[in-house]
Structure formats: structure tokens, C-alpha cells
Simulated assay, not measured.
Amino acid sequence: MPFAEDVTVIVGLAIVVGIVGTVVPVLPGTLLVGAAVLVWAVVVQTTAAWVTLAVVVLVLAVGQVLEYYLAARHMTSSGVPRRSLVIAGLAAIPGFFLVPVVGLVLFFVGALYLAELVRLPDRTVAWRSTVIALRAVGLAVLIELTSALLAGGVWLYAVLRA
């Protein structure tokens, strides 16, 4: 079945791109990993493929829940308001287009610091608050990367067992 083998290779490449996408904000990340495994399951059409898809979806869903729960908990326990994060997120959008690759991060950090500086006039306190928020964002990225790697590993295990 050469078509299924070709699809398997393409899906493997899409999973790698998805894993990279969890760190590089240009790519959709876990969404791409899940969609790639779905395409593979539809083409292969075996019980093992459907079970693999179910496990991958479960791993990615748990990762998303943990990502938002732990990052939000970290932020709220440290006192960083949602308003500052929304401002930073909105500023990151044009940053992505104005300064390719690094603009998203630069504009996010800069806007977050400025929003916190307006809220907390002391520069040291504002910077400390910014660092706390960045740690939470880093934690979220780490959780998403881990779930994408686990999902990719589940798929790879299924492919090698077939």
C-alpha cells in the first residue's frame, strides 16, 4: 500500500513541524500534530490507528488543560492582572509582522513591561511582575511542547508496531 506509506511519511513531517510550532509561534503546534494523526488514521483505517488517534487526542487535551490551568494559576497567584497580558498579547500581533521571527516575543515583553509600569510605577516591581508573567508563558510553552512530543511518540510507536 504505497499511498499509505507516503501519507505516513508526510504525517511524520507534519508532526515534526507541529512540534517545532509549539516553540516557534508562527506554526499551529499541537493542532497540527492532532490533525496529522487524524489524517493518518483516516488513510490507514485500522483499529490500531483509531486507538492511536484517541490516545493522541487525549494527550493533547490533557496538555492543553494543564497548560492553561498551571499558567493561569501561576499568574493569578503572583498578582499579574489579565489586563496586562491582554495588552501584551495584542501588541505581539503587529510585532510578529513588523520584526520577523523575534518581533512577537519582543513586542510581547515590551508591552507587558509597559503595562505593568503603568500599573506599578516602580520599575523594579514592574520588571519583577513581567518576569513572573514570562515564567508562566514559558511554563505553558514547555507543557505544550511536552504534550506534542508525547503525542508524536505515541504515533511513532503505533507506526513502528504496524
Score class of each variant (00 low, 15 high):
75 M>L: 15
118 V>Q: 11
150 L>D: 04
152 G>K: 01
120 L>D: 06
102 V>T: 13
127 W>T: 07
128 R>M: 08
7 V>L: 03
159 V>W: 13
115 A>V: 01
100 P>R: 00
44 V>Q: 14
69 Y>V: 15
98 L>N: 07
5 E>C: 00
162 A>V: 03
54 A>W: 03
133 A>W: 07
108 F>C: 06
102 V>L: 15
136 A>Q: 07
100 P>V: 05
144 E>N: 12
9 V>Y: 02
15 I>V: 15
2 P>M: 01
14 A>Y: 05
131 V>T: 10
113 Y>I: 03
22 T>L: 06
145 L>F: 15
1 M>C: 01
139 L>P: 00
137 V>R: 04
63 G>W: 02
104 L>I: 15
132 I>K: 06
93 I>F: 09
91 A>W: 13
110 G>N: 08
6 D>W: 01
93 I>V: 15
143 I>V: 08
123 R>M: 02
126 A>D: 02
87 I>R: 13
38 L>C: 12
106 L>K: 05
123 R>T: 09
48 A>L: 08
26 V>I: 15
28 P>Q: 00
48 A>P: 15
12 G>E: 09
9 V>H: 00
92 A>H: 07
44 V>P: 13
61 A>W: 05
113 Y>G: 10
136 A>I: 12
31 L>Y: 15
81 P>F: 02
91 A>Y: 12
67 E>A: 06
22 T>N: 14
84 S>K: 10
5 E>K: 01
55 V>L: 14
26 V>R: 07
57 V>N: 04
89 G>M: 05
64 Q>L: 14
7 V>S: 00
127 W>F: 05
130 T>L: 03
104 L>T: 11
65 V>L: 14
131 V>G: 03
111 A>M: 11
55 V>M: 07
156 L>D: 06
63 G>A: 04
140 A>H: 01
51 V>F: 12
72 A>M: 02
101 V>F: 14
35 A>S: 11
78 S>L: 03
65 V>H: 04
148 A>F: 11
119 R>H: 08
46 T>F: 11
132 I>R: 08
75 M>W: 05
132 I>A: 11
125 V>S: 10
66 L>G: 04
17 V>F: 15
91 A>S: 12
93 I>Y: 02
137 V>T: 14
2 P>W: 02
78 S>N: 09
29 G>K: 00
139 L>N: 04
102 V>F: 15
15 I>Y: 03
88 A>G: 11
68 Y>M: 08
97 F>T: 13
30 T>A: 13
69 Y>P: 00
52 T>R: 03
90 L>T: 10
77 S>W: 07
11 V>F: 02
56 V>D: 02
79 G>H: 11
126 A>F: 04
32 L>W: 12
117 L>H: 06
124 T>S: 14
49 A>N: 09
52 T>N: 10
79 G>V: 03
83 R>D: 11
158 A>Y: 12
131 V>L: 04
17 V>I: 06
11 V>Q: 03
10 I>C: 02
61 A>G: 04
15 I>P: 01
88 A>L: 10
16 V>F: 12
102 V>D: 12
46 T>P: 15
30 T>I: 04
